[in-house]
């Protein structure tokens, strides 16, 4: 269910580095915190090139009355400016945040849970693990994948909470994680909660879909941040308007189209709704589909492109846009 965002002013009241590239930030809204369920996130207004944009961050841990919200932000080399801004925050700074909302709600109708986290994807799962671990009748298994010990936040906290139910995978020393093995931990009534980088999520989802377990038992949280390839600038040709534009490494095709005066429609801006799709006429290089709207088959066909998140690597793309007006005007 979608709720209208309620924006409030919040003060940064605590900053701590909790892993090599992860900063934990505590935020105290002026109006006080509101109760939230585990899996919730808040939206944060961040200025990017002097324009306010919205970034979503999961809340770490359970709601505790009269306690600030906790988020954890990873410094991304390819950041569009969201994480760099967050990393520059100092104690006492004031920012605009939303009340918490939850798109990753924990269902309590099972006794069997498998939690899979990759890197910073751990943030919503900390509270979920802690809530589930409280009830001894729950069977909880967590799989936490990261580069190495120093790169993974909340390791100690999760070890204390889950003990032997926590499996840690260091990809630097142990190599790529075999997601097939993760799925083997599941059973008929297992609910899978998944959050992490896109390749991991795609692999786990694919394994799950090929397993005998119901598709509806998988829940995942996306913030549309990652892809197969590192982001790079790419060229876009729009024959209808005799246009050639360059989508900057920090920008999206969606923004670039709007910028040149091609009106676009969107809802989620994180690759879920499919409203911002354009048709691919031709392409070179690799299309890095980063959305959750198109099916794997559709992605392979390369006929459609979610302009809000997807990118092109080492090549260019020729597209048709939904706008069919005679001219474009800025």
């Amino acid at each position: 269910m979608r709720y209208r965002n309620i924006w409030v002013e919040a003060e940064v009241c605590g900053i701590a580095q909790v892993a090599e590239n992860v900063m934990e930030i505590k935020l105290q809204p002026q109006v006080g915190t509101v109760p939230f369920s585990v899996g919730s996130h808040i939206d944060v207004m961040v200025p990017i090139n002097e324009v306010m944009e919205v970034r979503s961050y999961s809340l770490v841990g359970e709601y505790t009355p009269n306690t600030p919200y906790t988020i954890a932000v990873k410094k991304l080399p390819s950041s569009r400016g969201g994480s760099s801004y967050m990393w520059m925050l100092e104690q006492g700074n004031r920012i605009k945040i939303s009340h918490p909302t939850n798109n990753f709600e924990l269902a309590y109708n099972s006794k069997n849970y498998l939690l899979v986290a990759g890197g910073i994807g751990i943030t919503p799962l900390v509270g979920i693990a802690e809530v589930l671990a409280k009830d001894p009748s729950n069977k909880v298994q967590m799989f936490y994948i990261g580069k190495n010990e120093t790169d993974m936040p909340y390791l100690e906290r999760l070890k204390n909470c889950l003990d032997s139910r926590l499996t840690i995978h260091f990809s630097e020393s142990m190599g790529t994680c075999d997601t097939q093995e993760i799925i083997k931990l599941a059973g008929e009534d297992t609910l899978l909660y998944l959050c992490g980088p896109l390749p991991l999520m795609n692999a786990v989802r694919k394994n799950w879909e090929q397993s005998e377990w119901p598709n509806t038992h998988i829940r995942f949280e996306t913030f549309g941040a990652s892809g197969k390839m590192a982001p790079q600038a790419f060229k876009v040709i729009i024959p209808r308007y005799n246009l050639e534009i360059l989508v900057d490494e920090n920008d999206t095709l969606f923004n670039a189209l709007e910028h040149v005066g091609i009106p676009m429609m969107s809802d989620c801006l994180k690759g879920e709704c499919g409203l911002c799709m354009v048709d691919i006429l031709e392409h070179s290089g690799i299309i890095d589909h980063r959305d959750f709207f198109l099916s794997d088959d559709q992605k392979e066909e390369n006929h459609k492109f979610c302009s809000c998140v997807s990118r092109v690597a080492n090549g260019a793309i020729t597209i048709e846009v939904p706008y069919q007006g005679e001219t474009i005007s800025k």
């Binding site: 798109n103 709207f293 198109l294």
Partner: peptide, 10 residues
Amino acid sequence: QETINPSACV
């Protein structure tokens, strides 16, 4: 559509 929006639930 061939997929289901991941946040779609009541």
